Simulated assay, not measured.
Amino acid sequence: MGKKSMLHPLTVRYSVFMLGLAVMGYGIGMMIEANLGVAPWDTLHIGLQKTFGLTIGIWSQIVGVIIILSSYIIGKIRPNVGMFLNMFFFGLFIDLFMWLKWIPTGGTMIERVFLFVAGLLIYTFGTGMYISPRVGAGPRDSFMLALNERMGWGIGKVRIGIECTVTLLGFLFGGPVSAGTLVTALTIGPLIKQFIPMWERMMAKPYGKVPKEQFID
């Protein structure tokens, strides 16, 4: 007879969810330090930080609150615990890792490219971790779903529209837009899709996996 896990399934799911947010925050920090471009939302956060001060993580939290409210107004998507945890801790982890200086820096172009690629892989690996327990979609995913419901557009078109708009806003505020931004936009979805099945297998019973729900398209 197999040994029964001493941990409650919900405890395991929330632990993996939180660890995934931490891994994502570290990956984003590496991409920021590489200075070769970041994901569209992080371009906006960095642009707001350069224009108005505060930290990148705090702007991630502020934008997250605005998005949660917008998702409810547009698509009547009610926020859940996972959404608020995502909004608060993701920004906190970014600031914490950068403040502790636990993130390596690159001097030469080769080192910066390596740092960027490693950061992108770590970020998408962490995204698979946070999604697999199905605790709840993050604020930005919920906003995408809200626009999909309200406008009737396909998820793919909505996602491209949001990311193009966010990138433009970030650029206008002084955020970094370069080759890495394009690489991130083109590869982030496919990479996350590779990591989600691996984490879903690990989150299978008795760890409380729920029916599969596709967040990334």
Rank of each mutant, 00 (worst) to 15 (best):
Q49M: 11
L19F: 13
F89Q: 02
R112H: 11
P40S: 10
V81F: 12
V177S: 02
G37Y: 12
P206A: 10
I77P: 04
Y14G: 06
G138C: 03
A118R: 01
F52Y: 13
T167I: 08
I216G: 12
F97A: 06
G180K: 02
A146E: 04
M109T: 13
V210M: 14
G156I: 07
A22H: 11
G2L: 14
M87V: 08
A204I: 00
L21M: 07
G2V: 08
M83Q: 14
Q214N: 11
G175H: 04
E163N: 09
G47P: 06
I32D: 07
N35F: 05
T11M: 11
G75S: 10
M6E: 13
K209D: 08
G29H: 05
L191W: 09
G25Y: 05
Q194V: 11
T105S: 11
G189L: 05
F90G: 00
F89K: 02
F173K: 07
F52E: 12
L147Q: 06
A22C: 15
D42G: 04
G64M: 00
M151T: 15
T105V: 10
I32M: 12
E111S: 12
I62W: 02
A179Y: 14
P104H: 00
L121C: 11
I103A: 04
M31S: 12
L115R: 07
G126E: 09
F215D: 00
T165R: 10
R112L: 02
I188L: 06
L7M: 13
Y14D: 04
S142C: 15
P133M: 03
N86I: 04
L44T: 00
I28N: 01
M6P: 08
S132F: 03
L7Q: 09
V117L: 14
P9W: 08
C164A: 15
G106N: 11
V113L: 14
F116G: 00
Q49T: 14
G154L: 04
L120K: 02
F17P: 00
L120I: 05
F84K: 01
G107H: 06
V135N: 09
G106A: 13
R159F: 13
G64L: 03
G27A: 08
A118Q: 09
G180W: 01
Q194P: 00
A179S: 09
A204T: 10
M1S: 13
V177M: 05
M18A: 14
I162G: 06
I160S: 11
T51N: 10
P139E: 06
L120P: 10
S15I: 07
V63W: 00
R78W: 10
G152E: 04
I66H: 03
E149R: 13
L191G: 11
T124E: 12
V38H: 02
L145C: 03
W59F: 10
L145M: 14
Q61A: 04
I74N: 06
P197S: 12
G126M: 06
G156M: 06
I160H: 03
G57R: 01
A137C: 07
I62F: 06
V210I: 14
G20Y: 07
K212P: 02
A185D: 02
V135M: 15
L19W: 01
R112Q: 13
E213T: 07
G189M: 06
G37T: 13
N80S: 10
W153G: 01
M144S: 07
F195M: 00
I67R: 02
T11A: 14
I162K: 07
Y26D: 04
L21N: 06
G161E: 04
